[in-house]
Design a protein around this nucleic acid. Structure first.
Lengths: 103, 103
DNA sequence: TTGACATATCGGTATTCGACGATATAATGA
DNA sequence: TCATTATATCGTCGAATACCGATATGTCAA
């Protein structure tokens, strides 16, 4: 894994909607409708489902997801015209450990 | 302990200097000159020492410390004309646990 | 009480963020 | 090929942040 950038991460986490997205993606089958593409736990949730739940514009949600991905907190899978985002659990564990030990 | 406000905390952590301050205060005797007031590990480090190390203006550092304190990450002790800041280790542990379990 | 500190607060400016609509890109299906 | 759908990118604008210098407050020492 690449080494993390705490500032980038904390900025990504400094927004209510982005925190919610991370929370929803912890249990995707609980918060999102089932998708044809496959198991949301494994491949992630597509942008439009996340957008609908967030209630913000498509462009805003797309940017939020990219921001979370650049921070390393989300992983992305593209299949055809869909983009699926899922949590990067390892990065979140690493962040937790960083706060506990390094910071 | 009061319940934490993750957004407030992550905003406070979204700045290089403020992260540094937290890091320095983890081992105050390592990063700051000894002070007459007492053990820096116990009572904290005074604002002027932190300002000198940060290399920013007094007003900026004062505001940063207040921001970290409002987020619950620092504790403050006033003795006479000095204000000593120290880490709130419990809050940092709580944050680490929040990321690991709740987020 | 006056003066010298330590710290906090105020007002300003330049940069960044939040959020949008419009548009571009890319894949799919007819 | 053309229209449709999914997502990304661009340009904008008001709000918030990063800093600063100036000033206020509060404490101590003479």
């Amino acid at each position: 894994m690449k080494h993390m950038d705490p500032i980038l991460i904390f900025k990504a986490l400094s927004n209510e909607t982005r925190l919610q997205i991370l929370h929803w993606l912890k249990e995707p089958e609980k918060y999102f409708p089932s998708q044809e593409g496959g198991d949301s736990k494994k491949i992630g949730v597509c942008v439009s489902h996340i957008q609908e739940k967030a209630g913000l514009s498509q462009s805003t949600v797309s940017q939020y997801l990219l921001m979370l991905q650049r921070a390393g907190l989300l992983e992305v899978n593209r299949y055809g015209q869909w983009t699926y985002y899922k949590r990067n659990e390892a990065a979140l564990q690493q962040l937790s450990a960083y706060i506990r030990n390094q910071l």
